[in-house]
Every structure is written in C-alpha cells, then in structure tokens.
C-alpha cells in the first residue's frame, strides 16, 4: 500500500469527522412543538377591539431585525390585564390523542368602578353574555383543527393560537399557518393580491421553573386592491384592503402550553380601520420563574 495514499485517506477521514463534529456543535437543535392532549389547561382569553396605536410594516420588520425586536418589545409591553380578559378557554383531553378547545364568555371581577358610560355598557354586555360560546372545536397534537364545519373566523383563531409544525423546527426556521385574514364579496373586484405568512421561533430560553421556553413570532399580511362596484349608476371606484397579524407567544416546550400569547390583528378596508387584540394568559401561572 502506498504510504502517501494511506496518509491522505486518514487525513481526509479525520478532517471530515472533525467537520461533522463541528457542524453538529454549531447547527441549531431542532425542537418539536406539540400540545399535550392529556393535559387540562385553562386560559383567560381576549379577542376584542383594541384601538392601541402601533404601526406595523411587515416588509420593514422582516428586513430590519432591530425594528422587529423593537416591535416585539412594544407588543409584549402593551398594558394588558389578563384578569379582565372576558373569555375562559379550556383545553381538555379527547379520544385519539386529541384535545377539545372550548371558549366561553366568563364573569369578570373588575377591580373598580367603570371609568365612563361606554365602559359601563361594555361590562353590562359582558354580564349579559356569560356563557356565550366563542370557540368550540377539537384539535390534534399539532393544533390541526378537527372540526371540518367551523366558520373561517373561528378557524383562523384556532390556527393563530394552536397550529404548530408537525415536524421539528430550528430557531429562525419559518413555517406558515393556514389563516386567511381577508374575506371579500362580490362588489370587490380584485386586480392585485399579495400575502406574506411567516411564523418562526425567534429564540429559546431556559427558565428555572418552566424549562425551555420558545419565543414564537407571527407575522402575516394580506394586501388586495382593485375596483369596487356600487350596483348603481355610480361607476366603480378603486379600493384597497389590507390586513396584518403580528403576534408573539412564549411557549413552554416541555409543558406543551402557552405561558403568554399576545397578537394584534389590524384590518383596513378602504379607510375604515379596526384593530383587535388576541391574547391568552394561563390561569395558573405558577409554572413560571417568579423573578
């Protein structure tokens, strides 16, 4: 055997092995997100108007990590009181490794008197609708909705809050969720339509009590433009519809549940803008480092 050849093969194998070890050390670990179908979880849930100013430019946020981080911080520091979230959402075990998701209006113990007439009316309405079902479905361990007859609005909520990839993902790896924010009917004749749909784990931290916690970011956008008919003698006029959904959740990987979830749905139809809050807070928050 040629000694040079033997040396070169050994060198090659050693180099390759070292490369593999280094690559394994450097590559990001993949995590499998999933819901624990055996667990009983209770959240306070909000899905309501929330006219808090916040400019969301999805393109700019995706292109500028510092801007994205600033917006995440802004979203996480919104002045929210989970005790006043008007809905209770329960997840309970079902057959075949699935879980039921049932959300109903609940009795809210407000800390003080209503600040104005509008707030008083809102509280009375809440009291009158205790028990009103807001969400009612069954999901599998990856949050796939099992209720084929669910309305698109509720289907969106389920996918925004519970859909996770059915494969391991690494930090920074994008996936999509089956959510459609726009729902236009006949008068709107679209010429252009565009959408972004990106969800990813931004970071994984270690909490002494909760264990590994994944910070998951949701950034969805739809823009549609064209002409709007009026079904009168008035000629069609241009229209533009846009919708963005920006959310951040802290997911307890080993506990298979949200520690927090705050989302902001912003829709503009022509010049009419509505902003909604979609938020979840676990009722038992004791599974978190109290620092």
């Amino acid at each position: 055997m040629c000694p040079h050849r033997s040396f070169s093969i050994k060198t090659f194998l050693l180099t390759a092995l070292t490369g593999c070890v280094l690559a394994a050390c450097v590559s990001k670990p993949a995590v499998q997100l999933r819901w624990d179908a055996q667990a009983h979880s209770v959240y306070h849930f909000a899905s309501e108007n929330f006219p808090q100013e916040m400019d969301i430019d999805v393109g700019a946020m995706l292109a500028n990590p510092a801007l994205l981080q600033a917006k995440i911080n802004e979203l996480k520091s919104l002045p929210l009181d989970p005790h006043s979230f008007p809905i209770q959402l329960k997840m309970e075990p079902e057959a075949h490794g699935q879980a039921s998701v049932l959300a109903k209006n609940r009795r809210v113990d407000y800390p003080g008197q209503a600040s104005d007439e509008g707030e008083q009316r809102r509280r009375e309405m809440q009291e009158a609708t205790i028990g009103l079902v807001q969400l009612n479905t069954i999901i599998d361990q990856y949050g796939v909705n099992q209720n084929h007859f669910i309305k698109p609005l509720q289907n969106n909520l389920v996918n925004m809050m519970f859909r996770v990839p059915d494969y391991p993902v690494t930090v920074g790896e994008h996936w999509q969720i089956p959510v459609v924010l726009s729902s236009l009917n006949t008068p709107f004749l679209a010429d252009r339509a565009h959408r972004d749909n990106k969800v990813w784990i931004k970071s994984i931290s270690n909490d002494p009590v909760a264990g590994r916690v994944a910070e998951i970011v949701y950034l969805l956008q739809e823009k549609i433009s064209g002409k709007r008919q009026h079904f009168t003698t008035e000629p069609a006029t241009p229209f533009e519809v846009s919708a963005t959904y920006f959310a951040v959740g802290e997911y307890q990987i080993e506990g298979h549940k949200w520690l927090s979830y705050v989302g902001r749905l912003d829709t503009t139809v022509e010049s009419f803008r509505t902003v909604s809050l979609i938020a979840l807070a676990p009722v038992d928050a004791s599974n978190r480092d109290p620092k």
Binding site: P152, A190, A193
Partner: peptide, 23 residues
C-alpha cells in the same frame, strides 16, 4: 354588474387563486 369574479390557476389542478374571497 359583475356578479362574480375569480382567478383560477390552470397550471396544476384548477386551484382558486382568489384566497381573499368569501368561502
């Protein structure tokens, strides 16, 4: 009046491209 407008993808399986339409 235009009562319905939709765009269909013909390259694959006649998929409806108008994701934003009422279901």
């Amino acid at each position: 009046a235009i009562m319905l407008q939709g765009d269909m993808d013909l390259s694959g399986n006649s998929a409806d491209l108008t994701f934003y339409r009422l279901s």
